[in-house]
Amino acid sequence: MINTIVFDLGGVLIDWNPEYLYRKLFTDEAAMKDFLTNITTPDWNEEQDAGRSLEEGTTWLVAQHPQHEANIRAFYGRWEEMLGGPIGGTVKLFKQLKDSGRYKIYALTNWSAETFGIALQRYNFLSWFDGIVVSGTEKMRKPDAAFYQLLLSRYQVQPAQALFIDDNLRNVTAAQNAGMQAVQFTGADYLKTELQRLHIL
């Protein structure tokens, strides 16, 4: 029986997209896509999520691509402009789960420790969690098995009694490997259907 729900944040509860910023900085869509794919790559950003300082990550990348210095520095210098609003349908489901009183609810997020405070100030529903484990603080990240085990041990969660929700299939697979049930988030409607199928809602 499920008694614990574990949410990812970005892409599940919070709309975060670098394109929100870079559409202001590029006039050419293809050039913007190329920059985000090949310069400020997801792998590079995840190093900051895993604990590398924003300054160190930025300095390193500027050294690799000095011709893109201004746009690279904007990534964290104007990072807040990448944040959209809450993903309303998922927040509504979160509130239903919270109000039921039947579940412990945690977040396991890949997020820089230096920027997470901005999210805490902006999204009041983050205070609803029974605990949040932030990769940048712990200096490990999804899909590393140790990051999942940290949450399970810290909050004394039995993996077989936990449901993990993430938009990234890689992270969903890692949660399943840790013994949790898991759902890949593709939208609030699909998530609601899955929660009903599992008799959680």
Rank of each mutant, 00 (worst) to 15 (best):
106 Y>G: 07
151 L>P: 11
115 T>F: 05
60 W>Q: 15
56 E>F: 05
128 W>Y: 13
186 T>W: 01
110 N>G: 07
154 R>F: 01
142 K>W: 04
29 E>T: 00
136 G>C: 13
19 E>L: 03
86 P>H: 04
39 I>C: 05
166 D>L: 12
29 E>C: 03
83 L>N: 11
32 M>D: 01
128 W>A: 14
131 G>F: 12
24 K>C: 10
143 P>A: 10
43 D>K: 15
123 Y>V: 13
140 M>K: 08
124 N>G: 14
196 Q>G: 03
75 F>V: 11
63 A>D: 15
122 R>I: 07
154 R>I: 02
195 L>A: 03
100 S>T: 09
162 A>K: 08
16 W>E: 01
95 K>H: 09
59 T>N: 14
39 I>P: 10
176 Q>P: 01
141 R>T: 01
157 V>L: 09
60 W>Y: 14
199 H>M: 04
16 W>P: 06
27 T>H: 13
17 N>E: 12
38 N>L: 02
145 A>G: 11
178 A>I: 02
10 G>Q: 05
27 T>L: 11
13 L>M: 06
136 G>Y: 08
191 L>G: 03
157 V>T: 05
193 T>Q: 13
106 Y>S: 09
53 S>R: 15
12 V>G: 13
56 E>L: 09
37 T>P: 00
134 V>K: 12
175 A>M: 10
98 K>S: 08
148 Y>M: 00
178 A>Q: 10
98 K>M: 05
28 D>K: 00
100 S>V: 01
12 V>W: 01
91 V>I: 14
200 I>N: 00
36 L>C: 03
32 M>T: 03
197 R>P: 05
152 L>G: 02
136 G>D: 08
183 V>Y: 01
151 L>K: 04
103 Y>W: 04
134 V>L: 08
183 V>F: 07
104 K>P: 07
145 A>L: 07
136 G>N: 09
110 N>H: 11
89 G>K: 02
146 A>R: 15
78 R>P: 00
29 E>Y: 04
14 I>G: 02
51 G>S: 09
85 G>R: 12
147 F>W: 10
99 D>M: 06
132 I>W: 11
13 L>Y: 07
188 A>I: 06
21 L>N: 01
102 R>N: 06
62 V>A: 00
152 L>Y: 03
131 G>D: 10
179 G>Q: 02
189 D>C: 06
80 E>N: 04
151 L>M: 11
75 F>N: 13
183 V>A: 08
136 G>S: 11
119 A>R: 08
193 T>N: 10
177 N>I: 01
142 K>H: 09
